Amino acid sequence: MTQLQFNLDMDILKESVINSNLDTVIKSAVVLVLNEYMEKERDEFIQASAYERTNQRRDFRNGYYDRELTMSIGKLELRVPRTRSGDFSPTVFEKYARCDQAFILSMLEMVINGVSTRKVTHIIEQLCGESVSKSFVSSLTQKLDPVVNEWANRPLNMDYYPYLFVDAMYIKVRENHRVVSKAVYIATAITEKNKREILGLSIDHVESFESWSRFFQQLKSRGLQSPKLVISDAHQGLQKAIQREFIGTSWQRCNVHFKRNIIEKLPKKNSEEIRSMIKRVFGAVKIEDSRRFKEELMKQFSDEPKYEKALEILDDGYEDTIQYMSHPAKMHPHIRSTNSLERLNQEVRRREKVIRIFPNTQSAFRLVGAVLMHYQESSYDKKKSLGK
């Protein structure tokens, strides 16, 4: 890159210091620097100084035009030099694209963190003394598309993920002049080094066997190998998709959801003893102890009609809910439920509530993907390995 040397008119800057406040001084200094920089760039382009006669000249000066540049210090009025041919273009506007990059990144950061576009425009006006339109802020978010798409399609064959967590949440999207619900599929995992990682996401019309299968096939196409254990809720289409797409993989039903389903069927009064025994069943470290505690519970309360529905749920789903006990004890707290994924969903939901209705599916994918990337960087990447 050409290194340009230039001098500033310090008399102009000194006048700004004496007669203006600090904000005006800073703006004046930046305007002086950028105007002088563009002037020297034009000299380099023409290959001749003003009034210089030389055989190397490639163009002629043709005055100036005014152009605005919005930066984090406010809106600047620049004096842009022109050439007769019109071929000269200063790099200032290429570099800043009419808004400086730090300014753009600040706005994007606000959007990702759940600040509405309306509030972003108000904040920018308070900080810079200049207003930007909601449509301008919305258009800036499109800069996230290539970044989010690259992240969402990155290879997954560099690591093995023995534990996979999957869940779906619903959002509202405007489609064909109607507001419809769409399912957002999110997958997280634990690596062999016991680090959490967000693997990817997908948005589909409904939560079904076919859509879950497509999501798993997408992960596999990126290099995901069959995990040892998939942890999820008990959606039947999801269970079927796991069985078909991951041969030899065990399914772990979320322990928290399962216990909640059992307790909901218990009487609210005079059920302290059975609640305590249920807790003991799933609090065991060894699978043999858990099965023994479960049999003792079933035997003790099987003749009481008020517990019939709760015991039926326990018996039907018990084996699917203790699969985590076949894995190292230090990993039990981390793989027996989808709590970690639920917390991630809450972060997505907190930002999604600001928007309420996405204008289209791509905008939903963009924002959710950006939130997941931000969460990965700010939360998972800073934590130590699990089970230590």
Rank of each mutant, 00 (worst) to 15 (best):
T188W: 05
A189P: 06
A189H: 05
T191Q: 10
E192K: 12
K193P: 00
K195T: 03
R196G: 01
R196W: 04
R196Q: 07
E197S: 06
I198E: 10
G200W: 08
L201W: 06
I203F: 04
I203P: 09
E207W: 06
S208R: 11
F209P: 01
E210W: 03
E210V: 09
S213H: 03
F215S: 07
F216D: 03
Q217R: 04
L219N: 02
L219K: 03
S221K: 08
R222E: 09
Q225P: 05
S226T: 15
P227K: 13
K228M: 13
I231M: 05
S232A: 12
D233C: 00
Q236K: 10
Q236S: 06
Q236R: 09
L238V: 03
Q239R: 14
Q239T: 04
Q239K: 14
K240N: 15
A241S: 14
R244K: 15
S250Q: 15
W251L: 04
Q252W: 12
C254P: 04
N255W: 13
N255F: 12
K259C: 14
I262E: 13
I263T: 14
K265F: 04
K269L: 13
N270Q: 13
R275Y: 04
S276W: 09
M277H: 11
M277W: 12
V281T: 06
G283C: 10
A284C: 15
V285M: 06
I287F: 00
I287N: 08
D289R: 02
R291F: 01
R291E: 13
R292S: 11
E296V: 10
E296P: 02
L297N: 06
F301S: 09
D303S: 14
D303E: 13
E304R: 11
